[in-house]
Design a protein around this nucleic acid. Structure first.
Lengths: 218, 218
DNA sequence: GACTCTATTCGTACTATGTACGATTGTCAA
DNA sequence: TTGACAATCGTACATAGTACGAATAGAGTC
């Protein structure tokens, strides 16, 4: 009984709101994410949230900034391409952890401090590697397009592994009849038991980094 | 006066609904796109639309399928990499014509016939080039990640060209003070008068196609 | 022309959502 | 105790998607 009873509701803060928002979005997805549900998850009322964050948009901005905070910055003590690999692997993991994030990362204006700081670190890495400004622009566009695009495909894949796979195959064979290449491709590759789309990530990333390496040397 | 007065309202069809929906989304963006506004644009009432398309989701699915229909399939009579270039240039143009589309292209389930047919054509092109199934998977993931990612960045760029650029620069210099690389980069590159982000598209695409070419040879 | 029958259109109304506004409560300094 | 400010919340409104069923229209038959 020193200060407060233990059942006393914790004071709300912007941080706590964002914590709850991330957890909720992870569980139910960003479409189903509403202020009312968030309030319930936080054991408070909708309008209390608005004292700490100005709007739902602001909340989502904050969530995206949090995701950037979770992505490792490129380490400074290794070769530039390994540094970029580290940050891209970390980025992919964060985007898989928060499947709602991938579509939002590039389509949001209003970057937060973590977002800016992250970009700053990546640009610093490329600059330190001796990239020209022009090549840096190319490189960053290329790298992030790939990372976000890959994450997007990964999070939208039809239920990997499990009993439903069989049904899926049957539905496919009916609907895909008019599309021979597509049918053949999915049958031969995507639907194979051992298929692990995430493992493919490295191939494309290596290809891009090799290409950039070549471009920076010439 | 032959059959009908000329002011008679045209009969609604799914196609006409989608025509109107695309045009409306082009004008006001996908966030502001509502069934009520669509009905107004079509000179009809909200509930009339639902006779032809089952839901707003179905409408958006249809719109996305339309965008795929606008993208040129890789021509069969040129080298595979040139064929892919043709289709990627066409895709970028379509995504710029319909700025709302880029975030949706990869994040939609329920592909329509045009979508399937398009993918079939691309896979056919890569197969004809002698790509293994595995390399095809890599290639397609890589190529489309880049195209969509690039389009996304392009459509979200802060108002290219114009008077506001100056204000932007000033805001930047204040907010970006803690981020030296970012500040330097934007000042040196993005905000330069002649900067044309779209022109950068070819660089990354070439890099990817070169890499794939090398991978297919080894 | 009158009369169906079906395809299409639309009026009404319900539910869910973001959030404006102002009242209420909690906390601490004086 | 008494303000004063920080934080919470009740109520209510506007805007969304769309369920339901009534209204209408057009084409084909008699």
């Amino acid at each position: 009984m020193a200060r407060k009873a233990e059942t006393t509701k914790q004071r709300l803060t912007a941080d706590r709101v964002l914590d709850g928002a991330m957890a909720l979005a992870d569980q139910i997805g960003i479409e189903a994410f509403t202020i009312r549900k968030l309030a319930e998850a936080l054991e408070t009322k909708p309008m209390s949230i608005y004292y700490h964050l100005a709007s739902k948009e602001a909340i989502i901005d904050g969530m995206v900034d949090r995701v950037f905070a979770e992505i490792a910055k490129p380490p400074l003590d290794v070769a530039w391409d390994d540094a970029i690999r580290v940050r891209c692997d970390s980025a992919l993991k964060a985007l898989v952890r928060h499947p709602w994030a991938a579509p939002l990362m590039e389509s949001r204006t209003n970057p937060g401090p973590e977002t800016l700081s992250h970009h700053d670190a990546v640009l610093g890495c490329l600059a330190a590697a001796g990239f020209t400004t022009e090549l840096t622009a190319h490189a960053y566009a290329l790298i992030d397009s790939y990372v976000y695009g890959f994450a997007l495909q990964l999070t939208n894949l039809p239920a990997t592994g499990g009993v439903e796979m069989q049904e899926l195959v049957e539905m496919m064979s009916v609907h895909l009849a008019p599309y021979p290449h597509l049918a053949g491709f999915t049958a031969a590759h995507v639907l194979q038991p051992g298929y692990d789309f995430a493992a493919e990530f490295g191939f494309g990333l290596n290809l891009i980094l090799d290409g950039l390496s070549r471009a920076s040397r010439s």
